[in-house]
Design a protein around this nucleic acid. Structure first.
Lengths: 249, 249
DNA sequence: CTAAAATGCCGTAAATTAAACACTAAGAAC
DNA sequence: GTTCTTAGTGTTTAATTTACGGCATTTTAG
């Protein structure tokens, strides 16, 4: 090292928890590591941040290099910087999550990746991931759970046209809860954020459902007037009762 | 620079938005910079992270070196890493906010600080701060607003024994809203998170108010059973009506 | 052609929660 | 003892949330 002090011996990276939704399941895109350290384990896509690159830019780059997708929802979540988190040196990492429509997804040829796969989020959380990526995944999943309640970001995971049942299943997957069909539909429709495009599902072996589109302009307009999106996970009545008793004591 | 590649030409720092509450006002602790760059401007307390130091540890260190306080509420908020945010090189910074009881506070002798002061948060946000600290302050204030609604962290800003009116004023300051006295008291007391210690204010020129303590154990116990703390900023009825009409269209 | 299977779609009553609102009580200062 | 200041308290009304069952539409199999 030359005259510079050793504050400049460190590096930073971004890691990206890329969520997708398919067939009622919430998934995360992982890469099987082809080289040490942690060879053979699943890891989050990530990369060192270039010297002249903003953090968000780096996160978008990682995403695009991997999936070819450009305009996706991306949000910074947390920075992980334990001294020993990276075996090869001091590398802190800024974690992002992004939401992509699996239907848009095309895997890019990627030199550093041996193997890329959509894994069910629950399964991924249970398996051993490289580095501190279990912790990162968990943190980002919690952030998603939280975000999805207060912002209409769930739509980022669905194709442009979707049915109310698909939307409900998405929420159920993210919130790990069951929702009442009638109440869910009532609530979502009452927000008037969905455009009824007068189209119906095709090729389904049952009564086809209406298709809707998320009306982003409408949302922004309402938001500007103080509207706040909110979906709650239904606290079941039994639970509420038990809690009320506990509090009463 | 020697053989190391230039990913390792960068550094990272922590910056700490230290909130306090005094006399009905929410304050933030700032340092007047004694040296270039940004000499003479107010700045958030912060420092480079040592090579062998975890991020949280660095944030606690900054806080303790400045205030002497050890056990305080501290939370990571966001990482700021624009290429041009620091004039002297690539320095990304991890922003934290912390909540301290001003009554506990004793200013430490601090070599690098010319001048340390509690500034009203609104005033601080309006003035020009060093670096990107306006942005950081704003982000952390928003994070506090948000956090205070869903976690009982406000108590960290109050002395151990406080009156309900003080608590209400705290919430009003953080949420920038007015709350109905009776409804607020009803709601807070119904959570049974406060211990009535049968003590009263002294030395006030009016009827003394009861003092309460926050019961942390109780909170943790309830939380474990699914209790969720929640304070809403009252959506005034007029606003709600206007919004409802907008949605109906 | 009919029946069965699958999912879509609808509305109301009851319970809970939130909002609005005004007077009496206690102590200190004069 | 009068005045001043803040503390403390309950009820009614409106809004929101929850619970809940049955008929409708389409495809497929027989």
């Amino acid at each position: 090292m030359n005259g510079e002090n050793n504050f400049f011996k460190s590096a930073f990276s971004v890691d990206n928890v890329i969520f997708g939704f398919d067939d009622g399941d919430l998934k995360v895109l992982l890469i099987k590591r082809g080289a040490a350290p942690f060879q053979g384990l699943w890891a989050l896509p990530g990369d060192l941040v270039y010297p002249n690159e903003d953090l968000d830019t780096a996160a978008y780059r990682v995403l695009e290099e991997l999936t070819g997708l450009k305009k996706v929802y991306l949000e910074q979540v947390h920075t992980f910087g334990s001294v020993e988190r990276h075996p090869l040196g001091r590398v802190i990492t800024i974690a992002y999550f992004s939401l992509v429509k699996i239907s848009d997804f095309t895997l890019m040829a990627s030199s550093f990746a041996q193997n890329v796969e959509w894994l069910n989020v629950d399964d991924a959380m249970k398996s051993e991931l490289a580095f501190d990526h279990n912790k990162i995944l968990e943190t980002c999943f919690n952030a998603l759970m939280h975000r999805v309640r207060i912002r209409p970001v769930g739509f980022e995971l669905l194709p442009p046209k979707f049915t109310l049942t698909e939307l409900q299943h998405l929420y159920e997957a993210i919130l790990s809860t069951e929702l009442d069909k009638r109440n869910f539909r009532k609530k979502i429709l009452s927000m008037s954020l969905l455009t009824d495009i007068e189209e119906y599902q095709e090729g389904v072996p049952h009564r086809p459902a209406k298709l809707y589109q998320f009306n982003k302009e409408r949302y922004q307009q309402l938001e500007a007037h103080g509207f706040s999106f909110e979906v709650k996970e239904s606290k079941k009545k039994e639970k509420k009762k038990r809690l009320a008793e506990l509090i009463a004591r």
